[in-house]
Design a protein around this nucleic acid. Structure first.
Lengths: 200, 200
DNA sequence: TCCATAACGGAACGTTCCGTTTCGTTATTA
DNA sequence: TAATAACGAAACGGAACGTTCCGTTATGGA
């Protein structure tokens, strides 16, 4: 039952002296499938290679390491999730968190994200890429929710980083402990605190 | 330059038909040293075994896997950090966070903790142990800060979980992204939000 | 039109680590 | 005194790493 499935019975030979986008797509799909079925424990370049019917050199031709591949798998799936500010920061955060957790639970993305954070702990270069490129891109929307609240005068500009960190960390805690189901009840109260107007 | 140092030139032969606590101590010290020098990337049972001058079977006789060893390394160092509530939850959290981050930066414990979280992402059994045993024990003190605030009538009992999750996640975010230095400025504002009295 | 070029899948490389087993040695405990 | 069990060391089979070859395929510049 653990036999490597051939999702693409089609063979992709060389298409000449240039990279084959079909190979890239097959590798991404295979990586996604492996993560969905076996999580980070089963995620190996060998496994992805077998699953995709692609050679390992082809994988390393497109991505320089495992973290790089994981980031692209995640980014490709995350693309659909947007967040546009209304006039209520707390409600914006509640809505976005619900959507995010549904996305994490309903797709392999939760596992991909956990794998990504784990991978970055053993590779300083990957951690730097995560911190300086991946996260800023992925957090652009939710940061916009806070800056919109600043523009409305609801929260001070100086507190955006602290509130954003609270928001990120809250999500990370639940996804990393695999408690997204049990933790949903905490979302509204937590988001109200993050969105609270300052002062006594 | 990568030669395995022998911190203990003393040989520990068998002391008879019972476990040798000196071996356990040497292994814990070696694990701590490996993490301090090479982080999670260099942390392997082989490396710890070489460093400790201990056989691998001896390691597995005391701990059932790497996560188990990591948890004990962390717990042994963390033992010194206590948190007792005053009358001000926000200040209690600021003080405790400062102490925790100093502990994470000034000892190998930050790296140990990051390794622990990473390890748990590829081992469901380790994640369960982290969630149901390690974390509750480690968070007992800080949970006490919140329940003391509840007893004073400062925050509602129903919000303890949400606020505690915010607190944990905030710390995890900064340690996992290796930003403890740069993030210190966010501590006071974040803690005030976590400790805020509810309602408008 | 021809041919250097480069990506393709596949196989094998040497290394590292896993967790386990085997070994002779050591000293306790029954 | 004899059974017991942990000790360090070495080696096991298996998996994954990242790299290097291989023969094949088709492009794109000369």
């Amino acid at each position: 039952m653990k036999a490597a499935k051939a999702a693409t019975p089609v063979r992709r030979a060389s298409i000449g002296a240039r990279r084959n986008p079909a190979s890239q797509a097959a590798i991404l799909a295979a990586a996604r499938a492996v993560l969905a079925e076996d999580g980070y424990a089963g995620f190996s370049i060998d496994a992805v290679s077998r699953r995709a019917g692609a050679g390992k050199p082809t994988i390393y031709r497109w991505w320089k390491n495992r973290a790089d591949l994981l980031m692209e798998v995640y980014a490709a799936e995350k693309a659909g999730i947007r967040a546009v500010p209304s006039a209520d920061l707390a409600q914006d955060l509640i809505d976005h968190t619900s959507a995010l957790w549904s996305f994490w639970c309903g797709t392999p993305s939760g596992r991909t994200f956990r794998a990504l954070l784990a991978e970055a702990q053993s590779d300083p270069e990957a951690l730097a890429a995560l911190r300086e490129k991946f996260l800023p891109e992925r957090l652009q929307d939710v940061r916009g929710l806070f800056t919109a609240a600043v523009a409305r005068g609801d929260i001070p500009a100086a507190e955006v980083e602290a509130r954003l960190s609270l928001y990120i960390g809250f999500n990370w805690f639940y996804v990393l402990t695999d408690q997204l189901d049990a933790g949903q009840a905490s979302i509204p109260a937590a988001m109200r605190l993050i969105a609270a107007r300052s002062g006594p």
